[in-house]
Simulated assay, not measured.
Amino acid sequence: MKNKYALSLIEKIQKELLLDKFDCSSTIENLKKLREYSFDDQNPVLTKALRLAYEHLETNGAFLIGIPMDEPIDDSEKEFNFSETNDLESFEYFISLLLDLEKKNNILDLREYNKAFLAF
């Protein structure tokens, strides 16, 4: 993301994760704010990822999506990495993707997260 307020919000979320201060309700509010900033970037993958992430947290009270797998898998046999407990490592990775959307792999991983949110 390019907006300085969005970047500081991402850093705030990362700091809370680092200090083991994950709070679902404040994280949801922060993701909603980030989504508002994402409209300026005109990146529909990012905007959708943020919406799906906060909707997932609202519904489940936890981040239950695992980090996307690296191996290319045939989409017809797509398997997703779901967790039964709050996967903060995956959430931390998800947030880190938002810092540099110029990297093609970051966008590809956001697309994989979007698919996993929808499949959940």
Rank of each mutant, 00 (worst) to 15 (best):
D70E: 15
S38K: 05
E92M: 04
S8W: 01
I73D: 05
K2H: 10
Q42A: 13
I95P: 00
D40L: 15
D40Y: 14
L57C: 02
F63Q: 06
P44E: 14
F82H: 01
P72A: 07
L97P: 00
E55H: 05
G66L: 06
S96Q: 06
E92R: 13
Y93L: 07
L19Q: 11
I13K: 08
F80N: 09
Y93P: 00
L52G: 02
E29V: 08
Y113S: 07
E89M: 04
L34M: 07
A53N: 03
R111T: 14
D109H: 12
N106H: 14
E89H: 04
F91E: 08
I28A: 04
F63G: 06
M1P: 14
L34K: 10
D40P: 00
N114G: 06
F39Q: 12
K115F: 08
D75Y: 08
E58Y: 01
G61K: 03
E84D: 11
L7F: 08
E11W: 03
L108T: 13
S26T: 14
Q42K: 13
A119F: 07
D41A: 11
K21N: 14
T59P: 00
A62R: 09
N114T: 06
E71D: 07
K33T: 13
L31P: 01
L46D: 06
L101E: 03
K78S: 10
E89L: 07
T47W: 00
P68E: 07
M1A: 14
I13M: 15
E92V: 00
N105C: 06
A119I: 01
L46G: 06
E29F: 08
L19I: 12
